[in-house]
């Protein structure tokens, strides 16, 4: 009798195990399909990034209107700090501008991101990278979103070395680059959380990781210059001119003037439309990013700065 009970228990367990494994497999596959097909339709941010990415890939040195094409990439400083339409009006018809901002990104994301964009066929006449000094010297990469959207799989070992990733993180990046769900799970989680509990959004500024203190100016300068050379060489290899745009922030004084002067000696253009603490605190949204009023002020000065600087170069 006990034997038959045990055998029946074993059969039940085998069936339950098979069903659970099968259901998990179906669920994970569905998650991947839904992420690829449905999520871009319902998530505005993601849809914009997709569209911007496609536009960036299709860029040629000159646009249909014979204006020079400019690709401007960067993080949230670009995303919320620049009014797209206004800037295009300011610099038309000389330049035609395309944007690809991704929040949370920094230097390595865009060094490898530009490599990928160029490999995918993007050929703008001018490439601008909008990063604060802190982001320029950061060794971080933006997790799964970076791996899925901006990283060439063949660059994985270079990314590991440059971003000091351990083997687990490197393998995560590999899987993130393969799977849309894995690459975008952070966005999906945030989106779901916002839908399920909108008040949680209020917590966001409080649970951000702490800002690290900046190294001494000479260390910042050396690292920033080396990185600017890398970006400049990369752009030149694909026939594009390069510039760095340092946005106004409320961060500590960060050697941006020194970077601008040192880069100029090497023929690398660094734009610094506003000096440190030149803009009042009232035009900042959350202690870091510009509010719409600040964005309007910044954009109004950025247009002429771009025209003047890029003509001179």
């Amino acid at each position: 009798m006990p034997l038959s009970i045990s055998a029946s228990e074993h059969r039940k367990a085998t069936r339950a195990l098979t069903i659970l494994l099968g259901a998990m497999l179906v669920y994970v596959c569905s998650l991947e399909v839904v992420t690829r097909l449905a999520f871009p339709r319902i998530n505005h941010v993601w849809r914009t990034i997709r569209e911007d990415h496609l536009t960036a890939v299709l860029l040629h040195p000159s646009a249909a209107s014979n204006s020079e094409t400019m690709l401007m990439v960067g993080n949230s400083y670009l995303e919320v700090g620049v009014n797209r339409e206004n800037l295009q009006q300011e610099i038309a018809p000389t330049f035609s501008i395309a944007y690809l901002p991704m929040s949370g990104t920094s230097y390595l994301d865009w060094y490898f991101g530009l490599r990928k964009l160029f490999m995918e066929g993007s050929r703008p006449a001018i490439v601008g990278v909008c990063l604060s000094t802190r982001d320029l010297i950061s060794d971080a990469t933006y997790g799964g979103s970076f791996a899925h959207t901006l990283m060439l799989r063949s660059d994985l070992l270079r990314v590991k070395k440059a971003s000091h990733l351990d083997n687990t993180m490197t393998s995560d990046y590999f899987f993130d680059s393969l799977s849309s769900w894995m690459g975008h799970r952070a966005e999906i989680h945030n989106w779901l959380l916002r839908k399920a509990a909108p008040s949680v959004e209020k917590l966001t500024p409080y649970v951000r990781p702490e800002k690290q203190s900046l190294p001494p100016s000479d260390v910042i300068l050396a690292k920033a210059l080396a990185r600017l050379r890398m970006l400049n060489q990369l752009a030149q290899r694909y026939g594009a001119r390069f510039f760095l745009l340092i946005p106004p922030t409320m961060d500590v004084r960060d050697a941006s003037n020194e970077i601008q002067a040192a880069a100029a000696k090497e023929g690398i253009l660094v734009l610094l439309p506003f000096q440190h603490a030149e803009l009042p605190g009232s035009v900042f949204l959350d202690g870091a990013h510009l509010n719409p009023q600040g964005a309007a002020i910044f954009t109004a000065r950025l247009g002429p700065t771009l025209l003047q600087s890029l003509y001179q170069n």
Binding site: M24, Y27, G143, A186, H189, L192
Partner: peptide, 24 residues
């Protein structure tokens, strides 16, 4: 019963994939 436990396992799976925090 096994049916309930299979559903529990699947519920864990859904919660992990959708509500696991973003940080590594």
């Amino acid at each position: 019963p096994y049916a309930f436990r299979v559903l529990t396992g699947l519920a864990f799976c859904v919660l992990i994939t959708l509500f696991g925090a973003n940080q590594e």
